[in-house]
Each structure stands twice: as C-alpha cells, then as structure tokens.
Simulated scan of single mutants.
Amino acid sequence: MAHPTRARGRSLIPVRITAVLMGALAAPAGCSAEQRDDWSRLALPEPATEEAPLIGDLWVGAWIAALAVGVLVWGLIIWAVIAYRRRGDELPKQTRFNIPIEFLYTLAPLFVIVPLFWHTIDNQDKITDIRTEPDLTVDVVGYQWSWTFNYVDEDVHEIGTINDRPTLYLPVGQMVRFNLGSPDVIHSFWIPEFYMKQDVFPGQPNAYQVTPDREGTFEGRCAEFCGPFHQSMRFNVEVVPEQEFDAKMDALREAGQTGLVDPPIRGAYDDEPLDPDDPGGDR
C-alpha cells in the first residue's frame, strides 16, 4: 500500500502542471500592446527597414515549425510513457527492424526541412538582390578596430577610432547600398534593427541593400570576433530626414573630410601611431 503522503504528493503533480501551463498562456493577455508586439517578434527588435520583414517572418516561421515538432515529439513521449509503462516483471515485446517505422522516421523530417530550406533560399535571394539602383551608396570598411564610412555619392567620409565611435547617417525612405570590405581580418557588419548581417572579408567584397523606413538612433556592431579590441567595434546609426542628412554631408565637407579614404592597414589608434614598417604585426 502506498504511503498516504506520497500518494497525495503524486495526485498534486497534474494540478501543478496545469497551473503552470495556464499561467504561461494567460501571461501575454495581461501585457500591454507594445509587449504583445514584442512577443509576436520572438525577441527580435522593432524592424527599421522595408526588407526586415523577410527575415522576421522567416525567424518566426522557423520557431513555429520547431514548436510544432516539439509538441509532436513531447506528445509521443508522454503517450509512450503512459501506454507502455511497466505493469509487472514481464519484459515487454521488443520491436526490431520495423520497416514502416523506420520509413516514417526518414520521411517525417523532410516535411520540416524542405519547406524551411525553400523559404530560406527564396528570402535570401530577395534580401541579397542588389540589381536595383540605390539612392545612396556607402563603402563600409571594417578594420582593427573600428569602421570607415565613405559616402560615395557625396564624396565625403567619416573615420572611427578605437576610442571614438563613428556615426553612420542614412536618409529615411531611401535605398542604401552597403559595399563591405576589410584590409585585415574578417569582421561582420550588423545593425540589429535592420535584421541583416553580412561578413566583411579581406579581399572579397560583399554588398547588400536596405531601405530604412523608420527614423531613429540605433547601434551597430561587429558580430564576428576579430581580435582583442573586438568590443570597440561599435558605431552609431542615425536615420534622419533627407534635409538633415544633407546638412550632415555639408558639415563633413566643412570639416575637411572630403574624398574617399582607405583605412589604416592595421588598427586606428588615438594615442599611439602605427608602425609603417610593421603593418601586419600585433600589439
């Protein structure tokens, strides 16, 4: 005979599980509209470009597919535990070389992998399509350890240093092409609210285009560990009206930051000049 305390404890387990599940389902109902919007993006920040939904929808869709597979697997596990639980000392029937089940194990994952693969390739082709002529071209150069922004159409530039973050100005509502390059190691150009991230390879230029559709101040960063001062490779992004963007370009001209420049071969320091005889050395 089971101990009464243990029996009572076991009887409370389903009640506790039900309470936890009901609490988890009821939690979003008590959130504000902004919080529910955050939940709908599944941890992604609020998008700031016209192209961001292509990535956001793929992200949410992948989570929905993963949850569906998880629910199915958890359900089968629970069903097997209950239906085939031990009922005595007799060894249950062993199943080996079950062709239908093995066929199901092979076929079922394809119904998940093939749609995800197709949607990924389709969205990737749309996101990386740069055949449309942009309104603005920015040559982005990542180096140890900061960024240079060359505004090609305006013939001005801004250089960042390890101590001073550069600011990238973009006009709202205009398509921008980022031409990415590096003179030293692999970096990764990432503005989280743009959802798009692309590696910056030495000797192998990359490019992508986005159309900022929301004014605001954002933070960009390098998403590839590139050296001991990787954490310094942050930059500010200002998406502003066209008039303010033009004013900023004029300010760069007045400051003498005209022309398109190449960054130092290795690093950009405020407090110590680079050794021109040792461009590839380590600090």
Rank of each mutant, 00 (worst) to 15 (best):
A33D: 15
P264D: 02
R214G: 08
D38P: 00
R8I: 02
F235E: 07
L170K: 00
Y195F: 11
D38K: 03
I101E: 08
D139N: 12
P212D: 02
P134C: 06
P4V: 01
K197Y: 02
I78D: 06
Q231L: 00
Q209V: 04
N98C: 12
A7M: 12
R86A: 15
A80W: 09
P212I: 00
D271W: 14
T161F: 07
P100E: 10
V60Q: 03
I17T: 08
W63Q: 03
R6Y: 15
L12R: 13
L260C: 05
I13K: 07
T120W: 15
T137P: 04
G181Q: 13
V73Q: 04
I130K: 04
Q174A: 06
N179T: 13
G259M: 14
L168Y: 06
Y269V: 04
D277T: 10
Q94D: 09
G281L: 02
G181I: 05
V71Q: 07
P28W: 14
V237D: 08
F201W: 11
W79Y: 14
T128F: 13
S32M: 10
Q209R: 08
G220C: 03
A223H: 08
R266T: 03
R10Q: 07
V152S: 09
I13T: 12
P92A: 12
L168V: 06
P92E: 09
E219T: 10
D271G: 08
